[in-house]
Write a protein that binds this DNA or RNA. Structure first.
Lengths: 234, 234
DNA sequence: CCATTTGTTTGATCTAACGCAAATAATCAG
DNA sequence: CTGATTATTTGCGTTAGATCAAACAAATGG
């Protein structure tokens, strides 16, 4: 399921925002303390309620973080891609992971044991600062999403979700922007608090308008500008 | 609008979770760097989009933090009471406040200039740790609320919101738990993504069931246990 | 005290979106 | 290649909750 990867070269990660304003040697020191692992598509990095023992940095691939309610509904909280820190429970004094994280494609990630957070706090404060900056952005995004859920109706929310996916996980093609991993209608529903049926209907409509091109677990946005207008409520 | 308050005695705040595991002298040093101010009911501590220049600690009173959308809808993000740190944009590298904070009753708060965050990081790391722990809980709560908005229908969400209010800002009376500041039906609607009409209908129903006693901007929960059951979906 | 403003209640529609159902299409496993 | 599984589409009836409307009640301010 997981095997060690060769040592990571600092220059491969130096341009991640997480390592902003840091010297190569500091980056190297941090990388040395972690362990790189491969994860196959579908593997879980950690499960909701697991004791939080590590924090992670994605080197290659995409993952989704989701929460499951007592009644069994799943809500996809967000996606992470290359260069992003995740599973940062130790950074905010949470004993357990609040959600499950799952590899959407084959991935490579570095994991550090919790104790290194406190060490880096002393030895590499810039790293910690960069990390908290990212965490702050996530808090802000969470709150934006609460506003969205409170005030916008389904079509706008779905448009927003697709836009976010294109920004975070999109690759340019000749015709538009393609989401780089399989996304089902159900997934989109779980990102927006609606049903797969409603998503399917919206996608059909947008598809006939030429706004996007959809397939089985495939989304390609053709006219991002028009989608943005929808997200803004036009 | 605001005037300086007398110097704060460390022993008054030592039992705030924010000062856990800290020596009196460290607490005193931190308090000295801040300025205590009075705020009248309705005063704003800061406005959405303002440049974030200070962070705050509530010494007495309650405040609400709310966001306004481009279309003019308001969403109440959360409430803060005595002992809670708020306006922590500097802690998470946010240049501007993402929301507006408003005093719900006459308040006393300490404010520190941004620069002291970095100073405390070095001189009082335990304070910073405690603060990030609180911020982490808020991130977790935000995400819980997203799940709630995605999966629960209005009655449960409103029940949750009222429960949260009783926990955060409730005072015991002979008959039950009273929310300690004026809350309108509209306020509850803005906390749950619904309309004041729906909240009014729910409150009427719950009131006749003897679950709560309501008045103009007044909520008193009589049977917290039954409300909790509603919040859990029964 | 009266006039005005602000908050609340409740009834009567209306509709966005859900839930159900059934058909179709793509993928997978043997 | 074939049957089973999983994802998607689309139609149709239902409903939770919004919207509209009007009356009422409490607070406020001159």
């Amino acid at each position: 399921m997981q095997k060690k990867a060769p040592k990571i070269d600092p220059s491969l990660v130096a341009d991640f925002p997480l390592f902003n304003d840091m010297k190569k040697e500091d980056i190297g020191d941090i990388l040395e303390k972690g362990v790189a692992k491969h994860y196959k598509k579908g593997d879980r990095f950690f499960d909701q309620f697991d004791e939080a023992t590590h924090f992670f940095l994605m080197l290659d691939g995409y993952l989704e973080v989701s929460k499951t309610t007592e009644e069994g509904s799943q809500v996809i909280m967000r996606h992470f891609g290359v260069g992003e820190l995740f599973g940062v429970a130790p950074a905010i004094a949470q004993k357990n992971y609040p959600a499950t994280s799952r590899a959407l494609v084959d991935c490579v990630a570095i994991l550090w044991e919790n104790k290194f957070w406190d060490l880096f706090l002393v030895e590499h404060p810039q790293f910690i600062k960069n990390a908290y900056s990212a965490i702050g952005q996530r808090l802000a995004q969470s709150q934006e999403r609460i506003v969205e859920m409170s005030t916008e109706q389904v079509e706008r929310r779905v448009a927003h979700a697709v836009m976010r996916l294109t920004h975070q996980c999109g690759v340019k093609t000749e015709s538009g922007i393609l989401i780089d991993f399989p996304v089902s209608r159900q997934d989109i529903a779980e990102m927006t608090g609606t049903t797969l049926h409603t998503v399917s209907r919206l996608f059909s409509a947008w598809s006939t308008k030429g706004l996007m091109q959809v397939g089985r677990q495939k989304i390609e946005v053709l006219e991002a500008h028009k989608l943005a207008l929808l997200a803004q409520g036009h």
